[in-house]
Design a protein around this nucleic acid. Structure first.
Lengths: 154, 154
DNA sequence: AGGCTATAGTTCCAAAATAGAACTGTCAAA
DNA sequence: TTTGACAGTTCTATTTTGGAACTATAGCCT
C-alpha cells in the first residue's frame, strides 16, 4: 500500500490512519492532551529521537491537527497547540486508554484517573448511539454503503 | 523506545498502542468488524503482503484479540475470529471512522453509513461520561494520578 | 569579551521493518 | 494428471527508525 496517498482512500478509517496511525504520533498526541506544547517537552517525556519528533510534528501541522505558534521572537521559538481538529481526536485517545485500562491492566491498577469537571465525578468513557443514547456494541451495528462508496463490500 | 516491551509501560495508551498501534493492524481489525475471517479475504481486500499479514495475525492471536479457529480438517485451515477483547476494540475503530468522516471527508460524502439495529436509525458514535451521560470534551476532563502511577506528571 | 546553558532543530550512519515477488504444501474437482 | 483454492513461508531490495553528534540563536554570568 502507498501510505503517502492513504488520505485519498475511500475509507474513513484509512484516512484517519493516514494521520494518526503510527505509534509515535499517538504518543505525541497523548502528550498534547496532557498540556505538553514544546519540542523539548515532547522529547524528554517520550524519549523519541529528535529527528522523528521533528518529522511527526511537521506532519501533524501539515494535517491541521497542531498549530505552530511563536512564543518567543528572539530567538524564534514555537510551540505546538492542538487545533479543533486535533481536539476532536480526544475520543480516539480516550477509547484507547479505556481499552488499555480494561484489557491490558496490571495488578497496580490504572495509572491515571479521569475526572469530568462538569459533573465532578471520576468516569470512564462510553461510546453511545447519537440517536438513542444506548451504548454501542459491534454486533448491534449494520453497515450500509454510503454516497461516497464506489463499490459495495462487507 | 523498545516497542517489544511497550505493553509493560505504565501508560494505558502505550499498552493499547503495543497491540493496535500500527497501520496494518488497524486495517485488519476493520476487516474483522466487516466480517472478514480468512487469510485470503484479508489479503485480497487490503492488498497487504502475505508476509506481513501472517505476522500481524499471529500477533493479534498472541494478544488475545483474535482466535484461530479451524474450519476445515483436511486440509487444515483456520479462520480468525474476534474474541471479546477484540470486540471491545470497536469504540476505537468507530471513533477513528467518525473522526475521518468529520475531518477528512471529501465531496463524495461518507463511504459507509452505520445503522443501530436496536433503534433502527443511522447514527454517529458519541463518547459520553459514564457518570452523567454528557458528551465528553478534552477541556472538561481533569487528570489525576491513579494507583498504578509511579510518579506524577501532566 | 568568553564561556555556559536552554531551546529547537538537522545531519549522518547503522539497524530494523516493510514491500514485492516467488515459492511450498495440502487437498478437491475436472 | 493438471489445475485451482487456500494458507502460509522465504528471499532480496527499499524505506523507516534509532542513536548519537552537530548547528544555530540568544540570554546570563564572570
Amino acid at each position: 500500500m502507498k501510505w503517502d496517498t492513504l488520505d485519498e482512500e475511500q475509507c474513513s478509517l484509512s484516512r484517519t490512519i493516514a494521520v494518526v496511525g503510527d505509534r509515535w504520533t499517538l504518543l505525541i498526541l497523548r502528550e498534547c492532551f496532557l498540556r505538553v506544547r514544546r519540542f523539548e517537552g515532547f522529547q524528554s517525556s517520550l524519549q523519541i529521537t529528535r529527528h522523528l519528533l521533528s518529522e511527526r510534528l511537521k506532519k501533524l501541522v501539515r494535517s491541521g491537527i497542531l498549530r505552530r505558534v511563536p512564543y518567543s521572537e528572539a530567538p524564534k521559538r514555537y510551540e505546538y497547540i492542538l487545533t479543533q481538529k486535533g481536539l476532536d481526536l480526544y475520543p480516539i485517545i480516550m477509547a484507547m486508554v479505556h481499552w488499555g485500562d480494561t484489557h491490558m491492566g496490571d495488578e497496580r491498577g490504572r495509572p491515571l484517573l479521569h475526572e469530568h469537571k462538569t459533573c465532578g465525578k471520576l468516569f470512564d468513557p462510553v461510546m453511545v448511539c447519537s440517536e438513542c443514547g444506548d451504548p454501542l456494541h459491534a454486533k448491534q451495528v449494520h453497515v450500509h454503503a454510503g454516497p461516497g462508496r464506489k463499490e459495495v463490500v462487507g
